[in-house]
């Protein structure tokens, strides 16, 4: 039996071709993995009548770890998000999103290395919405004490374990005194247990402005769900876009690693999209599994290919296909 059994969720659109490229790179590390392929997303809806079949749920519940390609969430009406369903079902309460400057992508800043810890299960994502009259819609923003404490504890632990120095709670507690006030109070309570870490808070609108003006000042951010969703994408944009933005959704007993970009259906089958976001999510997954050397080998391979600039995908200014980019990373890994 393989050392690791991982549920692979290729998703739809460009997801399957991205995931094949990612699998080729991860397999090249030699880490002993059995991949269990399962369906998820809109294609799956057509075939099985659901975005998230029971078989997929069982595989994740058994393996407690999965890597996921992009899926599409219908806007306004239609089906629920498969991503949100998974996060809620497996209580993956911590969304971890690193945003680190990639040298080859020319950006106007010298340093960006931000870790976002987004609470992943509460806030206005509790899906409690009502038309309370025919012209008034209401969405409940649910913030709980235990939910706020555990994301703060997760963030402090992760930050400390990874040599981070500073952690800030992002909120709007000056206006939403109950909900964001509770989130901030929980953060401050947890912060008392980590006197060695510099901790503080910042109002979300000011944080947005500061991120754009001077992102190098930020280290770790802890955010409620909605602010985390928006600002972690902003951070991804600062370093080069969603094509390079990995993510992890982590609970106490299960973790799902995924890119945060969409499925880009117009490019499906063209093998031109950048697989870096899913690949770097795979790097996070390998580290989570304790396969640190393999993870670092891939990271170095990616860095080398990006630095050489000969095999870049279109979004990074090159013409390489998804597979050519992945193969270049594999060759680079062999030279390390």
């Amino acid at each position: 039996m393989a050392k690791h059994v991982i549920t692979m969720l290729p998703g739809e659109g460009t997801g399957p071709e991205i995931c094949e490229a990612v699998r080729a790179v991860i397999d090249h590390t030699g880490v002993d993995i059995t991949w269990e392929y399962e369906d998820i997303g809109l294609d799956c809806l057509k075939e099985h009548g659901t975005l998230l079949p029971e078989k997929t749920i069982k595989s994740i519940a058994k393996n407690k770890i999965a890597i996921k390609g992009p899926t599409t969430t219908p806007i306004g009406t239609g089906h629920k998000s498969a991503n949100v369903t998974l996060r809620k079902m497996f209580d993956l309460y911590a969304n971890v999103r690193p945003a680190k400057l990639i040298p080859v992508l020319k950006r106007p800043w010298d340093k960006i290395d931000i870790l976002s810890f987004r609470e992943n299960t509460e806030d206005s994502y509790a899906a409690i919405e009502h038309m309370v009259s025919d012209e008034v819609a209401q969405c409940l923003k649910v913030i709980t004490w235990p939910g706020s404490v555990r994301i703060a504890e997760f963030a402090f632990k992760w930050a400390k374990a990874n040599g981070r120095k500073k952690i800030q709670c992002v909120h709007k507690a000056n206006i939403m005194k109950m909900t964001d006030g509770l989130f901030l109070e929980a953060f401050r309570e947890v912060a008392k247990k980590y006197p060695e870490m510099e901790s503080g808070d910042i109002i979300v609108d000011n944080c947005s402005m500061q991120l754009v003006r001077n992102p190098g000042q930020f280290d770790c951010l802890v955010l409620p769900n909605l602010y985390g969703d928006i600002l972690s994408d902003l951070c991804a944009g600062l370093v080069g876009g969603l094509g390079f933005a990995p993510g992890a959704n982590i609970g106490d007993n299960c973790a799902i690693f995924e890119a945060v970009h969409g499925s880009a259906p117009k490019y499906a089958g063209m093998k031109k999209v950048n697989p870096s976001a899913v690949l770097l999510s795979g790097v996070m997954m390998l580290k989570w599994l304790g396969e640190t050397k393999a993870a670092e080998r891939i990271e170095k391979g990616v860095d080398k290919v990006l630095a050489e600039g000969k095999h870049l995908t279109y979004d990074a200014g090159g013409t390489a296909s998804t597979d050519e980019y992945a193969q270049a990373i594999i060759r680079a890994m062999d030279t390390l």
């Binding site: 519940a61 809620k88 209580d91 994502y125 409690i128 709980t144």
Partner: peptide, 24 residues
């Protein structure tokens, strides 16, 4: 029945799911 927006009845409920004392 849902708790923090996650359905807890009927159907599969993760044993790890954190519940608060407020149910929809």
């Amino acid at each position: 029945i849902s708790n923090r927006g996650t359905k807890v009845w009927p159907g599969y409920v993760s044993p790890d799911l954190m519940l608060v004392n407020w149910y929809r």
